[in-house]
Design a protein around this nucleic acid. Sequence first.
DNA 1: AGTGACAATGCATACGATTGCATGCATAAA
DNA 2: TTTATGCATGCAATCGTATGCATTGTCACT
Lengths: 346, 346
Amino acid sequence: MKKEKSNPSNRPATMRDVAKLAGVSQPTVSRVLNQSNTAISISEETRIKVMAAVEQLNYRPNVLARGLRTQQTQMIAVMIADISNSFFHPIARAIQDVARERNFDVMIANSDQVYSNELHFIEAVTRRPVDGVIMVPIHITNQFLGEFVTRTNTPVAVLGQHVDHPLIDVVFARDDKAIYDATQWLVKERGHRELGLIGSLDDLPPGPRRAQAFVDALNELQIPVNPAHLLPGDFTLEGGRRAVQQLLETTDKLPTVLVALNDLMAIGAILCLQEAGYSVPDDVAVIGFDDIAEATIVRPALTTIAQEPADIGRKLATCLFERIGDLAMPRRILESPSHLIVRDSA
Amino acid sequence: MKKEKSNPSNRPATMRDVAKLAGVSQPTVSRVLNQSNTAISISEETRIKVMAAVEQLNYRPNVLARGLRTQQTQMIAVMIADISNSFFHPIARAIQDVARERNFDVMIANSDQVYSNELHFIEAVTRRPVDGVIMVPIHITNQFLGEFVTRTNTPVAVLGQHVDHPLIDVVFARDDKAIYDATQWLVKERGHRELGLIGSLDDLPPGPRRAQAFVDALNELQIPVNPAHLLPGDFTLEGGRRAVQQLLETTDKLPTVLVALNDLMAIGAILCLQEAGYSVPDDVAVIGFDDIAEATIVRPALTTIAQEPADIGRKLATCLFERIGDLAMPRRILESPSHLIVRDSA
DNA sequence: AGTGACAATGCATACGATTGCATGCATAAA
DNA sequence: TTTATGCATGCAATCGTATGCATTGTCACT
């Protein structure tokens, strides 16, 4: 009585167990279960015996073992940039939907826009191979990402960032164009001449690209840009508050409108402005980017550039699965639409 | 030239590769890398050779293979009930933090409170074994969950639901007590005598438990409950709106305060009331539960019962890891604090 | 010098599945 | 009756790692 063996076999049933119970060999069980494999014939009799045994033992194939043998894990990994940013929720949901259709599991990770978390994620997916990766890189360099891909041969779909690699597909939103148009709209249709920006030229992606579009639009219209009105922003709610605080401290001439590079910052800015006694949009108008759920909660309701995160998620996922199906697939750069939604904040 | 072999070895390096390069056997490499294993001695010389080879080949252990051998995957799975509910974000974050400390990977799934998604999740973690599971069960029966656990011997930590099983630990928030107290506070301190409820007795967990506390509190105070003021609610923003719509359609005598069983529904209710021309809290006050980020975004700012999701997540995770370390650990039922936060909506 | 202890390492096997190849059998063709 | 054909199945190797056991060499001690 060295080991307690009260449980006859307190572990999930294996193929061997099924085989023994059905009175066939273990490979036969495998063939019955993977009947989809063409050109393999199994007698109806043994198929029934095997299925009965499977049923009786409540057998489920061990995906780990299968993955080791086939080098395919039936799993993709997703790294989003900020789980607190509602923008990513429909994306995650859409990805899970597409994955479900193909019987893939999804492993979601959240980088919180922190570099070490991004590195850890890459480390994790090289140690635990997955069939594909979807990610929103913020700090990670394209080169580093490229090296991961060539080293592991893992297809990757990236959101927002252009990465030049034959195994990496990209989905983006022409956000620069959208910001450019929105900025011009603020000037031409709304008559603003003092515009501020939250999320500056030297911040995290996609900051610089969008900020540049903002600056370009104003240059085009020959509207001067007040450097004190270019605020940094880290794409969080708190970041939006901080930007406005900095604005209030460093200048007494407020812009008439603030262009925030995402909704979270826009909302933070609105809250902070209101707490400081300013009226939005009368004293300072605010416009955001993304059209997240909170945009209709905040008062005044947020004028913003809507993206279609569900569409983005679906594009990312289908792109990825197509490449998983055929590594040689030509590289794709997909565009997801965006459009201005005018509510009350600007 | 049957196969293209342009890449000398276009696949991640294995232990065998490292062994060959270092001129030792594969088990030796394994021992060098798992040096933590006590009582195994490796000469400094070979250790250096091996580490050099590891470095040169950029070797990373394959967690799949290791998991197959050791029956430990270094991975836990988390199923949250609604990724759009901010309440779960700090929970997920805390779990990831704790897991990171222990070098575990986390696989997050989102059930969206849909039964089939819950089933799919259980199916996924029985096919792809994990070392532990954290979940927020909504539809799944305790019995089904218990069967999964006994079948697979997987430790589980559950949020909010009492499940009686030696391998299942529970973290909850005494939400019934909190609702009870808040209800009494609304009556005694705020003078309300017409109270409504969003999230009724026969809804999803944790609805019934909290609803019962609401009813109990009023019975205790001998305040009558108007059945037309007991609204169903599915714990989503939309659900809150629908509840108010139903209320407006079915009765013309509005309650003076609405107790929503979570913040998302409370916010939905506020928005819907305002759109219908009512003032919050003057016409109808609203109180929520959770204290999610949006509670301070909505106007009027939401009076609510605050939970501590980060604490909950930490408790769930540490509980789980303790049990992973020792399956025989006595079963624990942990309580996480909650307290009323009075803002402007009630 | 003989013996035992211990350090350092290799050999072989196992984890749970897939898959190329071989084999046995029944049936059809010669 | 003999030979060819194809269906149904078993055998054995393999994926990458961990580990019990055996083996070798070194050293100290009697």
